[in-house]
């Protein structure tokens, strides 16, 4: 979860669906020897930058959620929460999504702003 040495962007989002599918697609091409791993690393680093900027600039949605905290952890500037019986309210409370549990992995926003 640490920031990338060269770019100061977290590789946090690589664990999401967008990042994991990109990693899979890159793996396929590397496995077929269509490209080398170093180039794939550059792609992933670009992905770290692009998704951070896109979430910051393109997304305006707000979200509130409540639940009962099961586990919390703060290590290396990374908060990890495991929340059970969560209720997410989005679009100003118009749509509600509930879940038995959700894991939150959160890196410091300040560090990414330093750049």
């Amino acid at each position: 979860m640490a920031a990338n040495g060269n770019t100061n962007y977290y590789d946090l989002y690589r664990h999401g669906s967008l990042g994991s599918t990109l990693t899979d697609a890159l793996d396929d091409l590397i496995g077929a020897e269509r490209m080398d791993p170093q180039l794939a690393m550059k792609v992933l680093m670009q992905f770290d930058r692009v998704i951070t900027e896109a979430l910051n600039e393109k997304v305006k949605a707000r979200l509130t959620f409540k639940g009962s905290l099961d586990t919390y952890r703060f290590c290396d500037e990374v908060w990890t929460f495991l929340i059970k019986n969560v209720t997410f309210k989005m679009d100003g409370g118009q749509s509600v999504v509930t879940a038995d549990k959700v894991k939150i992995v959160s890196c410091s926003a300040k560090r990414s702003d330093e750049k």
């Binding site: 989002y13 999401g16 669906s17 967008l18 951070t52 979430l55 910051n56 997304v59 305006k60 949605a61 707000r62 979200l63 509130t64 959620f65 409540k66 639940g67 009962s68 905290l69 919390y72 929460f81 929340i83 969560v86 997410f88 989005m90 999504v97 879940a99 959700v102 939150i104 959160s106 926003a109």
Partner: peptide, 24 residues
């Protein structure tokens, strides 16, 4: 929280800002 990607119930959501309140 901010700039997040949430995957829950098989669906994906993105948010710019999120406020969470929970009890331990």
């Amino acid at each position: 929280l901010k700039d997040g990607v949430l995957t829950v119930n098989g669906k994906e959501y993105v948010f710019h800002k999120a406020n969470g309140e929970y009890e331990w």
